[in-house]
Design a protein around this nucleic acid. Sequence first.
DNA 1: ATTATGACCGAAG
DNA 2: GCTTCGGCCATAA
Length: 98
Amino acid sequence: MTPFTKAVYDVVASIPKGKVFTYAHVAKLAGKAGAARAVGNALNKNTDFKTVPCHRVVRGNGKMGGYVKGTDKKIALLKKEGVIIDKERVRTSCIIDS
DNA sequence: ATTATGACCGAAG
DNA sequence: GCTTCGGCCATAA
């Protein structure tokens, strides 16, 4: 595991319940702003939502990125946690992209 | 060092 | 709205 990946995990693990981060935002908090693509790559190798709730990370436009179980399962989990979903899309109000 | 890859992003049609 | 294209970045080989 690389330092960047570790940073990404730490950030993702700090995402509050009922809210979601964008890949770009996670990248920025990880110290590598703009490395959204690299973030997705790191999450792809570790789909442990027990230690890393990767289902709380969505794309900049609110659409789903990827998920081992499929975007539908990811949406179901988010809704279950209290995140509002609009037609396969996360409500902007629930996305933390400061 | 160079090439290839991927859960991305923004602009253009 | 959606699709396509070019550009970004960290990793692996």
